[in-house]
Design a protein around this nucleic acid. Sequence first.
DNA 1: GAGAAGATCTCCT
DNA 2: GGAGATCTTCTCA
Length: 196
Amino acid sequence: MNDAKPLSRSFYNRDTRVVAQELLGKFLVRRTPKEDIAAKIVEVEAYRGSDDPASHAYKGETPRNRLMFGKPGFAYVYFIYGNHHCLNVTTEPEGVPGAVLIRAVKIVDGMALARKNRRVDSLVNLSNGPGKLTKALNISKIHNGIDLANPDELFICDSETVESFEMATSRRIGVKAGSEKPWRFYLKKSKFISKP
DNA sequence: GAGAAGATCTCCT
DNA sequence: GGAGATCTTCTCA
């Protein structure tokens, strides 16, 4: 994984729903001094702006959500419910709000370290939720605003082997307003998604 | 400066 | 299946 090449800025500079779907099957890489963790993205949700009541950007720009209005390809990490971090990837051109929430991943490398971060035995239970995966990869708000197009501490790269998978869509989870929008995308066959 | 709500997880019944 | 944990951010005074 040392020669992993991050996805380019132009990948993110598109419609949020397109980016969300194409992120499925990609690898999220967390690079630490000791060990790298690599995880395959199996579940995401798209969040937009003024047409999406569930989005942080719905009511306009604030200091917190300004990354969603900024350049594409950056990490937007926020803290919620006093316990959990959520990892998003910004999309769309600068000035247009959009982000993709990474909801679930399958750890493929650095398993021991991820387990240590989470302190759970179950492999499936390690990263099948937004709060779980950030803890497993030790992602916190210090990663807010990191450029994912740079092979630094955190980035996303293409999968080495192209494998076919079946994608499914559903309504988003955990949101009240705007929950009717089918903007959740996941790998149908994966056991590592938060909900079937 | 106070109050309420929140893109969740875990433990308990 | 349901409530508690626990803190950041936004809104309103």
